[in-house]
Simulated assay, not measured.
Amino acid sequence: MSNLTKTVELACEFVQGCGALVEIVQPKERELGGFSVRRCLPSREQQMVGPWIFFDHMGPVDFPAGQGIDVRPHPHIGIATVTYLFEGEILHRDSLGSEQLIRPGDINLMVAGRGIVHSERERPEFRQAGHRQHGLQLWLALPQALEEMEPEFHHYPSAQIPAITVGSVPIRVIMGSAYGVTSPVVTFAETLYAEARLQAGQRIELPDAEERAVYVASGGLKARDTVIPEHSLAVFSNQPGVELEAVEESRITIIGGEPMGKRCIVWNFVSSRAGRIDEAVQQWKDGRFPKVVGDEVEFIPFPDK
């Protein structure tokens, strides 16, 4: 997705943790062009968790017939976007010529590197009837040595994502390695991304990672005596053996990996160098980014505020 303003950080509430639980980030809901998002990363207090620099939870939103997601072409540098849907579908197009329908459970990985442009829309036949959209979009900051790599596009159908059961808890290892399995999704640094569905009273032990966090997409968790409510991101230390308990039926996302160091972020641009952001902004204003193949007319202007 694209931001509507230059500033990416959204206001969040923070609860200081204890023990292995460092803090709880509680994002505020914000409207973005006809649908709502909850942005946990980046925030003023917590820019990143491992390589993850952006975390948006979209919806769930019910669109009437004739309406839907329609994100015009916009650019990125220095990151890889990772799109994962719970419900609905999105048609991805980019300046490499990729055209890919994203369905629930698929992983869409677009590597911006030195620069890419993409759009996210809905097919006319899909929006003919009322429908629901619900999902996550995350950004991975690329390591400094790869920030200017050639753009790439990768798509992994749902059937390729490892699905296992650990202590009766179904888990999907979306990126990286956890619970004894490794995802085929390409990574550029040590990366953790997994999803689990828990019934009330079930427990799950967090996989080890240098940095890690858990997002409660629905339901609620408990870490010892601390409740982690729905739509919040709990940041944990790397202490081993951390166990969480579901206080009700819950769907959670686990993210983490190795730290990337501080990044500059303006609008849809991310870099370890502030001057590189300025270059990208001017390049977009001058129309020097490549066009999205099959979606060449419209675009999102760089926001003034």
Rank of each mutant, 00 (worst) to 15 (best):
G130V: 05
E89N: 01
I164V: 12
L140K: 04
R123H: 08
T83Y: 03
D70W: 03
R123K: 14
A80I: 01
R132V: 10
E120C: 01
R103K: 14
L140T: 09
I174D: 04
E87K: 13
G176D: 06
M110P: 08
S98N: 10
P73L: 06
A178N: 13
E150G: 12
I102H: 03
E152F: 05
Q160N: 12
G105M: 04
G130N: 08
V173F: 03
R103N: 09
E89F: 00
Q100Y: 13
P143S: 01
S95E: 01
D62W: 13
V71S: 11
G113Q: 10
L138D: 06
V166D: 14
S183A: 11
R132H: 02
I77D: 07
L109M: 06
A65N: 06
H131E: 00
E99P: 08
Q137E: 04
S158P: 11
G68P: 02
P64S: 14
P162C: 03
A159I: 13
H134F: 08
P151C: 02
G97I: 00
E120D: 05
M58A: 11
D106N: 13
M149S: 11
V169K: 11
V111T: 05
I79N: 09
V166Q: 14
T182E: 14
G113A: 12
G59F: 01
D94A: 00
L138H: 07
L142W: 02
I90V: 12
L101Y: 07
G176M: 12
L101C: 06
R127F: 14
H155Q: 11
Y156H: 11
V111M: 04
Y179M: 06
H74D: 10
N108H: 12
F63N: 00
G180V: 10
R72S: 13
Q160V: 14
T165E: 15
S98F: 01
V82W: 10
D62N: 15
G115L: 07
L140R: 10
E89R: 00
V71L: 14
A65R: 06
G68I: 02
P143Y: 01
P60L: 07
P64M: 10
V117G: 07
R93Y: 04
G78I: 05
E150L: 14
M110I: 09
G88V: 00
M58D: 06
A80Q: 01
E150F: 04
G97T: 01
G97L: 00
A80M: 02
L146A: 09
R132K: 13
F54G: 04
T182I: 07
Y156A: 13
H76Q: 03
A141Y: 10
Q133G: 07
P162F: 08
S158W: 14
T165V: 15
V173Y: 05
S158M: 13
